[in-house]
Amino acid sequence: MKKILLWGGLGLLLLFLTIGLIRSQKGQVSVGEIAPDFELISFAGESYQLSEYRGSVVVLNFWASWCDTCKPEAKDLEAAYQYYRSRGDVIFLGVDYVDTEPEALGYLEEFGVTYPNGPDLRTEISQAYRVGGVPETFIIDQDGLIAHVQIGPFRSLEDILLRIDPLLD
């Protein structure tokens, strides 16, 4: 009995450490994986469900108003959104990672962002994508698979288009 307890406990502990370690080493969801589904409720109160956008390319950007490195790419992302807007099959979604609403809205206004943005409630979306920090951008293809993971900001508008264009026919 004592032995079972000892080895059972030790085994559990080691198992747990292994799983924890694998998780901590795993990093962001990677290219080719199925993009975890989520519901984003925008600041305007509208709901966006990822699974409803099968057949479209989704650009999922994580940012925060307190994040200085997010700022340079904000305008480029908006420009990319405007660029594809008429096509209708490239969706831009912004997830505001642990932020305060007034500052977040101020940020969106400052950079003229018009595509849907919403808070990452209970940090569930960022945890599902195993985000390591902001900014990070995930590009999801028409089949709902991760096509590109951008850690850190995009350097330019071309940088963004370069990642999206190959996915469109």
């Binding site: 925060a64 108003s65 307190w66 642990v98 932020d99 305060t100 007034p102 500052e103 940090t123």
Partner: peptide, 23 residues
């Protein structure tokens, strides 16, 4: 503080924390 690990919100000096105290 939701972004810094294990720092109480009242003792955290970052801008983000200041904003949360504002909230």
């Amino acid at each position: 503080c939701p972004v810094c690990e294990n720092i109480p919100l009242d003792a955290c000096g970052t801008t983000a924390c200041e904003q949360w105290r504002g909230v």
